[in-house]
């Protein structure tokens, strides 16, 4: 992680590989997360992101090891709590660009209580939910997004299958009021990179469900590939209800941008506005506040 960059050197054009740290990912061969890591590095290079100003926050899980594999500041926190931690980073220093990466168990099971609140607050961050429909790090248990019953039967915790309705991450994000919602597929790198790039440029809470199969415990490439389909050109990206219809389509797994609201103030905007209102153009001091208690 401690990749060295010389401070004060000439501005250089950074390539995708310059954003990678010298740590090797712990992921299994064929894991979809490799594709996401490559896509994020490409997005950073394309936007010439300054790594000084990037903080990647994660929880626990295979995909949550993400921060260590990139050369910028990172916080690998505890299971399910990446969004609160990231909210703290964003509040403390609005100049930082915050990227949150985590899995379906991390974000939709143990951490599910935080997702709606980060979304409705419109925290200025990008949340990549790497969805493999299984717990991989703990060696194969069903997750809140597990859909394929035949694959679920191979999971250690569900030898008899599962009868629990899977969560629809895009549907949730839309219902929670996220200001940017998209879905991508790790097997389609070009489209994935394009979606992440747009999410990263979005001001506010941008959510991307990345279908990122687990080759070891839940290899869904074969069943997923025929179901995915790009969202049609004529989809109105500002229509939340239309986006919900797409999200809950039983026939296809739609990929691309579902919804975008570029005008909603971010949490940082709101707090800045509040500070301006509170001081009313005059600096306030604690001494003045104490006068009220005298």
């Amino acid at each position: 992680m401690a990749q060295t960059m010389t401070a004060g050197s000439e501005p250089q054009v950074r390539k995708a590989k310059d954003y990678r740290s010298d740590l090797d990912p712990i992921w299994c061969p064929g894991c979809g997360d490799f594709g996401v890591l490559a896509a994020v590095s490409e997005v950073f290079a394309e936007q010439q992101v300054n790594p000084d100003e990037v903080v990647i926050v994660s929880g626990i899980g295979c995909s949550s090891r993400f921060p260590g594999f990139l050369s910028c500041y990172g916080f690998h926190s505890v299971h399910g709590r990446a969004l609160p931690v990231a909210t703290g980073v964003a509040l403390a220093n609005p100049k930082l660009k915050v990227l949150v990466v985590g899995g379906d168990g991390d974000g939709l099971s143990i951490g599910a209580g935080h997702f709606p609140h980060a979304a409705r607050r419109n925290v200025n961050l990008t949340y990549l939910l790497l969805d493999n429909e299984i717990y991989g790090l703990t060696k194969g248990q069903i997750s809140p997004t597990t859909t394929d019953l035949s694959l679920a039967r191979k999971a250690l915790s569900s030898p008899h299958g599962t009868w629990e309705q899977p969560i629809n991450p895009v549907g949730l994000a839309l219902s929670y009021g996220a200001s940017y919602v998209a879905r991508a597929y790790s097997a389609q790198r070009k489209e994935l990179t394009s979606v992440i790039s747009r999410a990263f440029r979005h001001q506010g809470f941008s959510f991307v469900q990345v279908i990122s199969p687990c080759t070891t415990f839940y290899n869904s490439y074969k069943t997923m590939t025929p179901r995915v389909r790009p969202i049609e050109e004529d989809h109105n990206i500002h229509d939340r209800n239309g986006a919900l219809m797409l999200a809950y389509d039983r026939k296809h797994v739609w990929l691309g941008e579902f919804y975008r609201d570029p005008d909603r103030p971010t949490l940082t905007d709101q707090f800045e506005h509040l500070k301006q209102l509170a001081v009313g153009g005059r600096p306030a001091t604690l001494e003045a506040v104490l006068d009220r208690y005298s």
Binding site: P84, A90, A92, H117, L286
Partner: peptide, 28 residues
């Protein structure tokens, strides 16, 4: 807010300390 700080009411106490640790990491 008058004194230049930020107060946020979170969704639970776990989140509250999560925000606090994230903010601390960023130097606050």
């Amino acid at each position: 807010p008058r004194l230049g700080g930020t107060m946020i009411q979170t969704e639970d106490e776990i989140s509250a300390l999560g925000v606090v640790l994230g903010a601390s990491f960023a130097g606050a």
